[in-house]
Design a protein around this nucleic acid. Structure first.
Lengths: 221, 221
DNA sequence: CCCGGTTATAAACAGCTGTTTCAAACGTAG
DNA sequence: CTACGTTTGAAACAGCTGTTTATAACCGGG
């Protein structure tokens, strides 16, 4: 099967270049040149650049959602109707994120892509990810809801997104920060170190006291 | 002075389009067309697209750094050598961020631009911001160091970036999240609401317990 | 009035973009 | 070996990109 070779070579090259420079800044000639593949191969195998981008994401997100669903199944079976503690849920998510790209040793690329998916407007990508992989996130948030019954729904919604920002922002900008950290603190930091650092922070953030209600008089302006 | 009109019209239009679609996705013809200005005006007044991008940032960051320095001066004078509490520092930063774009009612644009500055690789932008505005951030982190003496330096470094991620990620992606929040929780959320929500979360995150040290045996892999 | 520097305009530049075309090479089933 | 669907290849497409050029309009000072 010669197709497989061309297709995976395109995907392997594209994901690296996308992660390094972004989508708009990476041309098809850039990809096909580095992948030693004919220019027309992208349109032949994927149809368009948009579809290539989505295919790059699917190659990470498909195994991720599958594993994550299975991990949540296991967790629910183990707790058998009881509420799953927040730490367990976060731990499971972190473990799954770490497992998925392990074989290709490209956790960093995966993280950068996630960051790009949020920041680069690319409307089609956001829609694609939401439609394709929204359900597993919904399932996760429902479990978080049960684990944090004292949190008002809106507050939990925002805090989850706060923490999503923390994780994606940090891990996707890792390279730049790593250099500073290594120079200033003599630490060689890996993604795994960071996740260890993130855990207590995320838990504390989710359990932080509620904000003071707005004084009614100060609402305007 | 006809120059002022053309220049500000370019800047006003550019910052909105950049914030909506990103830098690479926004062409000069796009900007000049919407601004009702000749195409060559950008290169005439700014020299290049890169310089335009930097000028857009400077228009926000120059007043910001000036005000922030002044606010920190006041704070230091008021505490007169005593350690400034963490909450005060965060509060001051938040207040300054809110004040700066107030006149142009474009806080949202400012936040989106900050998000782009980090996510879009755009090496020149990161360097420009670091060189031009790094000092005020250094001053701020030193005050945070004094306010959190129990935190190891490396830990504080990372937590500050965690929180930077939380804030920028949330505020720059506000529009998409706002719609969901409004639909699901009937809340109309403004940036000011979010900052109120962010405060206890950021404080709790900075004061979270330290992560468990890595078991020596588990270091490899 | 008229000159001289500043700003605006339209046109053209070379280069790159994603996509399409069509012929050549391939690999396999009959 | 032949015939056929699949995959590659080189070339060309129209369209857009940032930038430059040369000309024209403007406008305040002498």
């Amino acid at each position: 099967m010669a197709q497989t070779d061309t297709v995976t070579r395109i995907l392997d090259t594209a994901e690296v270049l996308f992660a390094e420079r972004g989508f708009a800044e990476t041309s098809l000639r850039n990809i096909t040149g580095k992948a030693k593949v004919n220019l027309a191969a992208v349109n032949y195998h994927f149809g368009s650049k948009k579809s290539l981008i989505q295919a790059v994401f699917a190659r990470y997100l498909d195994p991720f959602t599958e594993r994550f669903h299975r991990a949540l199944d296991d967790l629910e079976a183990h707790y058998d109707g009881q509420v799953i503690p927040l730490e367990e849920l976060l731990e499971t998510m972190a473990r799954t994120v770490l497992e998925v790209p392990a074989e290709r040793n490209s956790l960093k690329v995966f993280m950068k892509l996630l960051g790009l998916a949020y920041s680069q407007a690319q409307g089609h990508l956001r829609r694609y990810i939401q439609e394709e992989y929204g359900s597993v996130f919904t399932r996760f948030t429902e479990l978080v809801r049960q684990a944090t019954p004292d949190l008002p729904d809106a507050e939990r919604f925002w805090r989850l997104h706060f923490m999503l920002g923390t994780v994606i922002f940090t891990l996707s900008g890792l390279d730049a920060l790593r250099d500073i950290a290594e120079k200033d603190y003599g630490e060689h930091v890996t993604v795994r170190h960071l996740i260890r650092r993130l855990r207590p922070v995320v838990v504390a953030a989710m359990q932080a006291p509620l904000p003071e209600p707005v004084p009614a008089a100060a609402e305007a302006g």
